[in-house]
Simulated assay, not measured.
Amino acid sequence: MPDLICALCEKVIEGQVLTALEKTYHPNCFVCTECKKPITGGLFQIKDDKPYCQDDYAQLFAPKCYACNKPITDRIINALGHTWHQDHFICALCKVPIVGQNFIERDGRAVCQKCFEEKIADKCKACGKPVVDKIIVALDAKWHADCFKCKKCDKPITQQMFQVEDGFPICAVCATKSSE
């Protein structure tokens, strides 16, 4: 049987042999490409057929979190054109993590649905609740489609023509009755 030669120091290996990347090494010769320290415990990463310890691989090649600028070695959140640790992708207002929730981008920052509705969204002139879906803009205000109704008969205004009384719409039928 031929002698085993270490791929790093090119000396004959006597005693323990470490096999990795289809080569043989003395255990202390199998080192990280970056820090040159022996890779122990069998955990390493490969980049361009070169071994790296876990820490150096993360520092050199893992995506960085936009919030803390540290490597992301577990679940990566891609949002707002950046990568984040899942605990660092938080609502800009309440600071609660928003992974798995709907959010709204506001000035380049994420805002959770709850904060958006409570603190940012326009409020309906009729009911005062946030308007986040279909919206009607009329009379210098925003309205839910279901809330934009006649002040007198309470029916939805579906025609483009309507009258105004005290800042609220009146349908053409009620406006005609009032003028008679």
Rank of each mutant, 00 (worst) to 15 (best):
M1H: 13
M1C: 10
M1D: 12
P2E: 15
D3V: 13
D3C: 14
L4R: 12
L4G: 04
I5Q: 02
C6Q: 07
L8C: 13
L8G: 09
L8H: 15
C9Y: 06
V12E: 13
I13K: 09
E14N: 14
G15Y: 07
L21I: 10
L21C: 04
E22A: 11
E22Q: 12
K23I: 02
T24S: 13
T24C: 07
P27R: 03
N28P: 04
C29W: 06
T33I: 00
E34C: 05
C35Q: 00
K36T: 12
K37R: 11
K37A: 05
K37V: 08
P38W: 08
T40G: 13
G41W: 07
G42D: 11
G42N: 03
L43T: 15
Q45W: 05
K47T: 02
K47Y: 04
D48T: 00
D48E: 05
D49C: 04
K50M: 00
K50C: 01
P51C: 01
C53I: 03
D55P: 01
Y57I: 02
A58D: 14
A58H: 05
A58Y: 09
A58C: 09
L60E: 00
F61L: 06
F61A: 03
A62R: 01
P63M: 07
C65E: 06
C68W: 07
C68K: 07
N69S: 15
K70D: 14
P71W: 03
D74Y: 06
R75Q: 10
N78E: 13
A79I: 05
G81N: 03
H82V: 11
H82S: 15
T83I: 04
W84N: 03
H85M: 10
D87A: 15
H88C: 13
H88F: 10
L93Q: 15
C94V: 12
C94P: 11
K95N: 13
V96G: 05
V96Q: 15
P97M: 13
I98W: 07
V99M: 09
G100V: 12
Q101D: 15
Q101R: 14
Q101V: 10
E105F: 06
E105Y: 09
R106P: 02
D107K: 15
A110R: 10
A110Y: 06
V111R: 04
C112I: 09
C112T: 11
Q113M: 08
Q113A: 11
Q113L: 08
K114R: 12
C115Q: 06
E117S: 06
I120W: 07
A121M: 09
A121Q: 11
K123N: 14
G128A: 13
K129R: 03
V131H: 04
V132T: 15
D133K: 06
K134S: 07
A138S: 15
A141G: 11
K142E: 11
W143D: 00
H144N: 02
A145W: 01
C147Q: 06
K152N: 09
C153A: 01
D154W: 00
P156W: 04
I157T: 03
T158D: 04
Q159K: 10
Q160I: 04
F162E: 06
F162I: 08
Q163Y: 12
Q163C: 11
V164S: 11
V164T: 15
E165Y: 09
G167K: 08
G167V: 09
F168S: 01
P169M: 11
P169W: 07
I170Y: 00
C171W: 03
A172T: 07
A172R: 03
V173Y: 09
V173H: 12
C174F: 03
A175L: 10
T176K: 14
S178K: 12
S178V: 12
E180W: 00
E180I: 04
